[in-house]
Amino acid sequence: MAGVTQNDKTHMVQLVYRLKLFLPLLIFIIVAVFLVVALGRDPNAMPSALLDRSVPEFSLRVLGDEDRYVGQEIFLGEPSLLNVWATWCFSCRIEHSYLLKLSSQGVRIVGLNYKDNGKKAKNWLLEMKDPYALSIIDNIGRFAMNLGVFGAPETYLIDGMGIIRYKHVGVIDDRIWYDHLLPVWESIK
């Protein structure tokens, strides 16, 4: 009898040990669930902490009308795209024709001329047509920094209350517009 209990005991010990070996698998399953859920989200969408906050305060001059200073009020009333662009930015040249198309469809686009040369910027808009309702000039990039701009081009979706609803880093094309921006745009219109 005693031998049997001894045997049972070793079996128990082995069983417990075996169960412990399942621990890594369990931890991995938890991590995997998180990864799966996280993957369904758009990582690029809004890395800055400004999502669903108002556009930061600014007072900047308007391109082509340099005596005029504007602030957050330009975003009030109707939804707009805020597009960060510059003449030194190669991708902006690619994006430009798409912006023209959007503005011809009635999308209001505000330009943020970022760390650029005013004369060149004006020539660029003359040469390739102007999709912007207005372009504000941010030479030193302070406003862009408050906004969390990484570089050009970048586009922010801002609703009629001046609240940032979405951010896209990089060029906008048909795919980006229909997949990502348009749904948000429809929801704030």
Binding site: Q14, Y17, R18, L21, F22, P24, L25, F28, I29, A32, L35, V36, L39
Partner: peptide
């Protein structure tokens, strides 16, 4: 992710079932 789950999950399962006690 699918690949990760198969490789890591699979090997950890194998480890749990056949790891030396």
């Amino acid at each position: 992710l699918t690949f990760l789950v198969i490789v890591i999950g699979g090997s950890l399962l194998l480890f749990a079932l056949k790891g030396p006690t």
